[in-house]
């Protein structure tokens, strides 16, 4: 319990620092602006590349986003979750980008797909049973609906919190929880079949 509180405290301190940087930027401090770009670029690039295979377009979108923010800095909200706000803005920007739609050959009017490839690093696991379980999870993650995939990605691989995910996807926090629960359910369901399959296997052998 105490650890949780401590953890939250660190998180709050970190958010406070991010926010101070953000406020300095909205007041016209260009070195704060550069620091924000430096901090957030890798995440934005990773996230953006899930919508387009063309890395140049993704880089362009991120740069355009930052240029836009600089030009409209006076009108930006001073109280935001920086990472979530930037990811959300990038997502919208990519969806509006005609180049991406044509490059990735999407039918007009449809938003680009969120495509993410999960993999299992075999080097970590020598035990065959665990390897099968990991592959099972990977396969489940690969086949769940796009929305669930995006939420899982943001939660587990970008370490965003529920409220931040809600902000990125423009949905309510409750919906985020529901989507996560649905994804967990799929993982559990597929896992169980695999697990019983293995048990059965053992039984037949012995």
């Amino acid at each position: 319990m105490l650890l949780r509180i401590k953890k939250n405290l660190l998180l709050i301190m970190e958010q406070q620092r991010e926010l101070e940087l953000w406020q300095a930027f909205t007041e016209g401090d260009i070195s704060a602006f550069e620091a924000i770009m430096l901090e957030q670029f890798p995440t934005l690039y990773q996230y953006g590349s899930k919508f387009s295979k063309n890395s140049e377009i993704v880089k362009d979108c991120i740069q355009d986003l930052f240029l836009y923010l600089w030009e409209h800095k006076e009108h930006l909200s001073k109280n935001v979750s920086v990472k979530a706000y930037l990811m959300s803005s990038l997502r919208r920007r990519i969806h509006l980008n005609k180049n991406i739609v044509s490059f990735d050959a999407m039918p007009t009017g449809e938003s680009p797909l969120f495509q993410v490839a999960f993999s299992v690093e075999d080097a970590f696991i020598e035990n065959e049973y665990l390897q099968r379980l990991s592959n099972q999870i990977k396969d489940t993650l690969t086949h769940i609906p796009q929305r669930q995939k995006e939420v899982i990605y943001l939660r587990f691989f970008q370490n965003l919190h529920r409220d931040q995910i809600a902000e990125v996807l423009c949905i309510t926090p409750q919906t985020v929880s529901n989507i996560l629960q649905m994804a967990f359910k799929s993982i559990r369901k597929n896992w169980k079949t695999e697990y019983f399959g293995l048990l059965f296997f053992h039984f037949v052998l012995s």
Partner: peptide, 25 residues
């Protein structure tokens, strides 16, 4: 082990490139 093994394939971008993109902006 399972948590560590499951990864997302992320594109790589060097710090150098990021810095030059920022400079460009």
């Amino acid at each position: 082990l399972i948590v560590k093994a499951i990864k997302v394939e992320e594109p790589s971008i060097s710090d150098q490139e990021i810095k030059s993109l920022i400079q460009h902006t």
